[in-house]
Design a protein around this nucleic acid. Sequence first.
DNA 1: CCGATTTAATGGAACGTTCCACTTATTGGC
DNA 2: GCCAATAAGTGGAACGTTCCATTAAATCGG
Lengths: 350, 350
Amino acid sequence: MPQRAESREKVTIIEIADAAGVSKSTVSLVLTGRGSVKPETRERIRQAMDKLGYVYNRGAANLRNTHSKIVGLVLNDLSNPFFAEFAIGVETVLQMAGYVAFMANTSESVVRQAQVMRMMREHGAGGIILCPALDSTPEELALASGQETALLVAIRRLPGVAASSVVPDNVAGSARITRHLLNLGHRRIAYLGGMSSMVVRQDRHRGFSEAMAKAGLLIDASLNLESMPTRDGGFSAMSSALALPGRPTAVVCYNDVVAIGAMLAAAKRGLVVGRDIAIVGFDDTSEARHVSPALTTIAVDAVGLGERAAAMLLERITNRSAPPTSHVGPADLVIRESCGAYQHALTAAG
Amino acid sequence: MPQRAESREKVTIIEIADAAGVSKSTVSLVLTGRGSVKPETRERIRQAMDKLGYVYNRGAANLRNTHSKIVGLVLNDLSNPFFAEFAIGVETVLQMAGYVAFMANTSESVVRQAQVMRMMREHGAGGIILCPALDSTPEELALASGQETALLVAIRRLPGVAASSVVPDNVAGSARITRHLLNLGHRRIAYLGGMSSMVVRQDRHRGFSEAMAKAGLLIDASLNLESMPTRDGGFSAMSSALALPGRPTAVVCYNDVVAIGAMLAAAKRGLVVGRDIAIVGFDDTSEARHVSPALTTIAVDAVGLGERAAAMLLERITNRSAPPTSHVGPADLVIRESCGAYQHALTAAG
DNA sequence: CCGATTTAATGGAACGTTCCACTTATTGGC
DNA sequence: GCCAATAAGTGGAACGTTCCATTAAATCGG
């Protein structure tokens, strides 16, 4: 009866060597596939490993190697499906390359972030993909990741940090969706949600402003409303917006979850979204598709960004001393119901 | 200017010792906090570590230790918000205890699952929390986790595997929501979605059957419809159900995502969910709350299950040789709109 | 002021690998 | 049949820690 694990204590390369009647060096050779070993011997060693239930000890190997096949993935908010999808993309590519991911969730806490990054370095991670927590500073990150560990900052750009980066094209996406509303005839457009201290908000708002300016429109300062980037935040900011004397006819939201909050607020006031008012989001999370009316938004392909991030990090890990690179991913307009485009088409046709 | 990382190469405990004028043993003492070291000396060592940018090497330490502070978390479907929430719960407890999680997503692939579990063991994980991929067999798992690595199976019960387990009370939850529909006067109730090979489906369907039997109702075999546990699966299964000669007046779905698919199918046939037909789910994902009409479902507290799983695993890791334990979490009825309870109350009152 | 105890610190042998420098066998060219 | 080249395999010194057995110095009770 072969293939039976029957070990009590940890079985090592040396016991395999004894069982197969070779030296530990030879076992190491078949483990790493490096030297040349007679097929017959290789087979004998393989069988000994199966029989004794051998488990390769990467910790010990890395002690000599330096090359660890571990990558850290630090997420600011795993409960947000957008980041979950991003993580899936990252993981797929890493697994393909034989790497394993240390995944951690910071819940927007910079102290947790520092903790987990330190942990990852201590475990010998060759690189870290970081979606930084809200108040991350470049200084912190500089010392949280030494030059042993390649750093890649994703999703949230972090000016002033020497690392690779992967972000969606927030400016272009925001400009795109704003133009869409302008094309539908809207002139009084609000920008709603997110705090202006957030870099992503700054980028998206810039896209909005540029599109408005290009259309020759002034921006009414009262139509720029901040909020927490949550459903509740969107709800209350939208409530304020609707109480304004000059109520907007269209609203560009910071992201989908804010937009959905805003939609609820509008509905509560008896407005039919897509007819009485246009509301659009950003991200194209799966919720955007299934909310009613379905949300017009900007798709940024979270999975694709994750894959790209992983690929770029691996490149930088293997090809050490390559300079940090940046990638800006596409941001595509997805027209659904909440912008009233179909309503509009109908009116125009009839 | 203190606190400056200025290392080119990896700095070790020995260099710290030299810099602080002590032996490596003393540095190890302050690192582990074990022996008694003069506060003054401790401080000197701490400063040397800061100045040289020392990073503790856990791989090397574990070589002696055996105790690794790594726990693996293997998820079958991270894109499902339910598992993302579960993961958050797990991670919170692990981080609190100074552990770090190796998180991996198998996308229901048993070969990926085997790969990542092997990887985790190779990295010296002290335990693994596993949400098993669909066709996992007890045999595979037995050899995928040796007796070095404590195994805890979560969410999906796996009969015949010697491991701790944490699952929600699927039978009771399903019975509960079925009784709710019976109380609303429904008699012709379908069970929809999931494949009957899935243990979770078996448990949930059993709860359904028992509640029906207790109400003295026979189950019409044509009203037990399988489907993939996805939105599309729910959609097509519901379409078939509606084409049936004796159409059901209520539908108990395998989970929320199937239920949402079913709702779409019903809406497409011109039925108003919650008035013309009752549809209920299971899990209480965040989508259930925000879909329209809001979904009546069973809440199982994914985060809580995750926390519990992590706590139980840690217990078993530290208190080695403790026998495997099981936990069955609560499953509470959440009444919203899709079951028509409000409609029903209205009718009853008027 | 002595022996016993406590405190503070130290070498050095593990831990399980890799990999370099070697040795032996085997093969090939001529 | 000889030399060179290749194939197959081997010891032993790292790698960065921990921890046991010691030592040296300080403290203490009587």
